[in-house]
C-alpha cells in the first residue's frame, strides 16, 4: 500500500459533515513532540522496571514510526534494543462494509508470548482501532500484558479503552480533526495540529 492511501484512510472519517477543514491551532512543534516521545519512553521503562521483556508494536501508519522513535529513545538511555512489530488492523475493524477499508502494510510482529507488548498509535479517539488491534495481536500470541501508548488522547471514547502512556490530553470537538505529521511519514517538520470546520474558524478569527 502507498503512503497516500494510508493518509486518506486515516483522515477520511474525520469530516462528519463532509466539508473541508481549516487549520485552527498548533499543538506540538518538533521540540514538543521530541520531549513527549522521550518522556513516554522513560515512563514505559519505569513502569516495567526495565526494558528486558518489552515489545513495541506500532499501528499503521504513524504508530509504526512512533514505535521506532520510542525504541531508539529507550536504547539511548537503557542500552537495550527493544524489538519492534508492525500491526495492520484493517481486517479486524468493526466498520468493514460501512466505509472503504484497505490494508496499510504487512503485519510483522516478533514472538510476544510471555512478554509485555506496548501498542503504539498516534491518536486515541473512539478506541475502536485499539479494540481491533487487541484482537489482531492476541491471534499472534499470548502476551503477559498489553499496554497502550499514544501521542495524543483526544477523548470521545466509544469503548472502554484507556491509554497507559499519553503524550498530551487534547480536548476536541467531534467535528474537529487532530493531524499528526511525522517527518519520516509525511515529510516536512514534525507537528501536531487541530483542524476544524470553516464556520468555527471564521468565528474564532
Amino acid at each position: 500500500m502507498h503512503a497516500s492511501d494510508a493518509a486518506a484512510n486515516e483522515h477520511a472519517p474525520a469530516t462528519p459533515g463532509g466539508g473541508h477543514l481549516f487549520f485552527r491551532a498548533g499543538v506540538f512543534d518538533p521540540a514538543d513532540l521530541r520531549r513527549a516521545v522521550t518522556r513516554i519512553a522513560h515512563e514505559i521503562v519505569e513502569r516495567n522496571h526495565g526494558a528486558a521483556d518489552l515489545v513495541l508494536v506500532g499501528l499503521y501508519t504513524r504508530g509504526v514510526a512512533l514505535a521506532r522513535r520510542l525504541a531508539a529513545a529507550i536504547e539511548s538511555f537503557e542500552g537495550i534494543a527493544v524489538p519492534i512489530g508492525t500491526l495492520d488492523v484493517a481486517f479486524y475493524r468493526d466498520d468493514i462494509g460501512l466505509r472503504p477499508v484497505q490494508p496499510l502494510g504487512p503485519t510483522e510482529v516478533p514472538d510476544v508470548a510471555g512478554r509485555v507488548v506496548v501498542l503504539v498509535d498516534d491518536v486515541l479517539y473512539t478506541g475502536r482501532t485499539v479494540r481491533s488491534a487487541l484482537d489482531a495481536l492476541l491471534e499472534l500470541g499470548r502476551p503477559r500484558a498489553v499496554q497502550l501508548a499514544v501521542l495524543v488522547d483526544r477523548g470521545h471514547r466509544e469503548l472502554p479503552v484507556r491509554a497507559d502512556y499519553v503524550g498530551k490530553n487534547l480536548p476536541t470537538k467531534a467535528a474537529e480533526d487532530v493531524r499528526v505529521h511525522l517527518s519520516e511519514v509525511d515529510g516536512g517538520d514534525d507537528r501536531v495540529e487541530i483542524w476544524g470546520p470553516a464556520e468555527e474558524a471564521k468565528r474564532d478569527a
Binding site: 500500500m1 495492520d88 484493517a90 479486524y92 468493514i96 503485519t107 491471534e139 499472534l140
Partner: peptide, 21 residues
C-alpha cells in the same frame, strides 16, 4: 495484486484467518 500481498501475509500466520467478512 498489491492487495493480494496482504493476504499472502495473513496465510503465513499461525492462525491464517481474519474476521474481515
Amino acid at each position: 495484486l498489491d492487495l493480494t500481498d496482504s493476504f499472502v501475509e495473513v496465510l503465513a500466520r499461525d492462525i491464517p484467518k481474519v474476521p474481515a467478512l
